[in-house]
């Protein structure tokens, strides 16, 4: 993610889109990003509080003008119901990662300790490895990964960002 060179006025922006849960909707969205040459950093989709409506959190590396276009183009998709830019809102932003670390018995205690500092969970242990689950901001996840790297990371998976505006305001515009 840090591989993208910084461009003036560009930053990571978090958009939340609500869309009808119908076949093909996700490919419409992904296709749109590809076709219009928008830079997706992460994309997460799942059910929302409303049956039949999915909620997508997408992080794009963009400036104001690009974000405006992304939102307008998303809106143009027939099955997209609502799009919000929550980058400037106070929001709870989380990512989840599962990290499988090389962990012979000699270093297990140390890894456990590090995980505790990050409030990460040990979710699986085998003779040679431990799997750690961490939830938090990207920075926090990044930090834990960096700290664990010297032990030897055997496998890693991250979800991408999910986000929700703090307080009573709903992303779908209702309170």
């Amino acid at each position: 993610m840090s591989a993208i060179p910084a461009k003036e006025g560009f930053s990571r922006r978090t958009l939340v889109a609500l869309m009808e849960d119908k076949p093909g909707v996700l490919s419409h969205v992904v296709n749109l990003f590809r076709r219009r040459n928008y830079n997706i950093e992460s994309l997460t989709v799942g059910h929302s509080e409303t049956p039949g409506i999915s909620r997508m959190t997408v992080v794009v590396y963009a400036n104001d003008a690009v974000v405006e276009q992304v939102m307008k183009q998303l809106y143009k998709l027939i099955n997209v119901v609502k799009v919000s830019d929550i980058s400037d809102d106070a929001a709870v932003i989380r990512e989840l990662a599962l990290i499988k670390v090389h962990a012979p018995s000699s270093v297990r205690a140390e890894i456990k300790q590090l995980a505790d500092i990050f409030r990460a969970q040990i979710v699986d242990v085998s003779r040679e490895s431990m799997t750690i689950e961490i939830t938090g901001t990207e920075d926090k996840v990044d930090s834990l990964i960096e700290i664990l790297r010297p032990f030897g990371i055997k496998e890693l998976t991250r979800t991408g960002r999910v986000a929700m505006v703090r307080g009573a305001l709903h992303t779908n515009g209702n309170t």
């Binding site: 076949p23 093909g24 490919s27 419409h28 296709n31 749109l32 076709r35 027939i78």
Partner: peptide, 9 residues
């Protein structure tokens, strides 16, 4: 997909 306003299967 990229050349229609919408499509259905």
């Amino acid at each position: 997909m990229p050349i229609t306003k919408h499509n259905y299967l």
